[in-house]
C-alpha cells in the first residue's frame, strides 16, 4: 500500500520536477557560471568578478538600472490607480449579470499579442498617426507633434500592456468582499474616504499585492514595449542585456546583467512585501 502510494506520488511529481530542473534551475546555473567567467589576456576562460565590477564602474549601467527600477515601480502604481476604480465598478456597482460582460470586454484586447497592441498605439500616436491627423484637421494644432518615443508614451504603453494582470486579481479580491462590510463601516461613523483606506484597501490587500508583483515583474522584464514606444531614449535595462548578448556578443556580461536584474526584482519585491506587511504565500495563493 505504501509503495503504491509512493509510486503514484513519484509519477505525478516527475513532470513538475523535470520542469523546475530543466527549464529553471539548469539554465540559471549555466547563466550564473557564465556571468562569473571571463577571458584573460591570452583569450583563455577564467573565473572572475570582472563582469559584475564592470556594472558598478560604468555609470550608464547604473543609471539605466535605477531608472528601470523606478519606472517599473511607477508603472505598477499607475496600473493600480487605473485598474482599481474599474475593478470596483465591475464588482460592486453594476449588476452581476453586466459585470461578467464587462470583464470579458476588459479581457478582449488581450486576445491579440502584445506586439499587435503596441503597434496599435504607435499608429495612434506617431507623427503621421490618427491623433495628430485629427488634431491638425480640426484646426486645434498647426502642425503634427511626435507623441511617440518619450518616457510618457513608454509608461502609458507599459501600463496598458500590464493592466490585465492587475485587474484580474483585484476583481477576484473585491468579489469576495461582502457589501455589508462597507455598510457596517459607514454605519459605525466612517466617511467614504476612511472606508476606502481602512476597509476596502486592507481587504483587497492580497489581491493588490499579487497583482503588483506580477505587473512589476512584467514591466521590469519587458523588452518590446520600451523598445517600440520609448525608442532610442528608453534606456530600459533589458535592452542593455539584449545588447550584450546580441550586439556585443558578450554573453558573460549579459549573464551578469541578467543576474543583477533578478537580484533587483527580488529585493524590491521583498521590500514591498515588508512595507505592506503582506506575506508572499498568502498574496499568491
Amino acid at each position: 500500500m505504501k509503495t503504491h502510494f509512493r509510486l503514484g506520488l513519484f509519477i505525478f511529481l516527475t513532470p513538475v520536477l523535470l520542469w523546475l530542473l530543466l527549464l529553471i534551475v539548469v539554465p540559471h546555473l549555466e547563466l550564473l557560471m557564465m556571468s562569473l567567467q571571463g577571458k584573460d589576456d591570452m583569450g583563455k576562460a577564467v573565473w572572475t568578478f570582472a563582469n559584475y565590477r564592470h556594472f558598478f564602474v560604468e555609470k550608464i549601467y547604473w543609471y539605466t538600472f535605477v531608472r528601470t527600477a523606478l519606472y517599473a515601480i511607477t508603472v505598477t502604481v499607475l496600473t493600480f490607480c487605473v485598474t482599481f476604480p474599474v475593478a470596483f465598478y465591475i464588482t460592486k456597482v453594476v449588476s452581476p449579470k453586466f459585470s461578467g460582460f464587462l470583464t470579458i470586454l476588459l479581457l478582449m484586447p488581450f486576445w491579440v499579442s502584445e506586439l499587435v497592441r503596441v503597434y496599435g498605439w504607435m499608429i495612434l500616436l506617431r507623427e503621421s498617426g490618427v491623433i495628430n491627423h485629427l488634431l491638425v484637421s480640426s484646426g486645434l494644432m498647426d502642425s503634427p507633434v511626435e507623441m511617440l518615443y518619450n518616457d510618457i508614451s513608454m509608461l502609458m504603453g507599459l501600463v496598458y500592456t500590464s493592466m490585465l494582470f492587475m485587474v484580474v486579481p483585484l476583481i477576484s479580491a473585491l468579489e469576495g468582499m461582502d457589501d455589508s462590510l462597507i455598510e457596517a463601516a459607514h454605519d459605525l461613523g466612517a466617511s467614504p474616504l476612511t472606508i476606502f483606506f481602512r476597509i476596502i484597501i486592507p481587504y483587497a490587500a492580497p489581491g493588490i499585492t499579487s497583482g503588483s508583483i506580477v505587473v512589476f515583474m512584467l514591466a521590469l522584464g519587458n523588452y518590446l514595449t520600451p523598445k517600440l514606444m520609448g525608442g532610442k531614449n528608453s534606456l530600459w535595462f533589458t535592452e542593455q542585456i539584449y545588447n550584450e548578448f546580441i550586439a556585443s556578443f558578450n554573453w558573460n556580461q549579459g549573464a551578469a546583467f541578467g543576474f543583477l536584474l533578478l537580484a533587483l526584482s527580488s529585493v524590491i519585491i521583498w521590500f514591498g512585501l515588508k512595507l505592506s506587511r503582506q506575506e508572499l504565500g498568502r498574496a499568491l495563493s
Binding site: 461582502d178 455589508s180 462590510l181 455598510e183 457596517a184 463601516a185 459607514h186 454605519d187 459605525l188 461613523g189 466612517a190 466617511s191 476597509i199 486592507p202 481587504y203 490587500a205
Partner: peptide, 18 residues
C-alpha cells in the same frame, strides 16, 4: 448613515476580517 445616532448589527454580522 455615518452621522446618525443609530447603529446596526447586521444579519451576517459584517465583522471586519482584517
Amino acid at each position: 448613515p455615518n452621522r446618525r445616532p443609530v447603529n446596526l448589527v447586521f444579519q451576517n454580522l459584517a465583522l471586519f476580517p482584517m
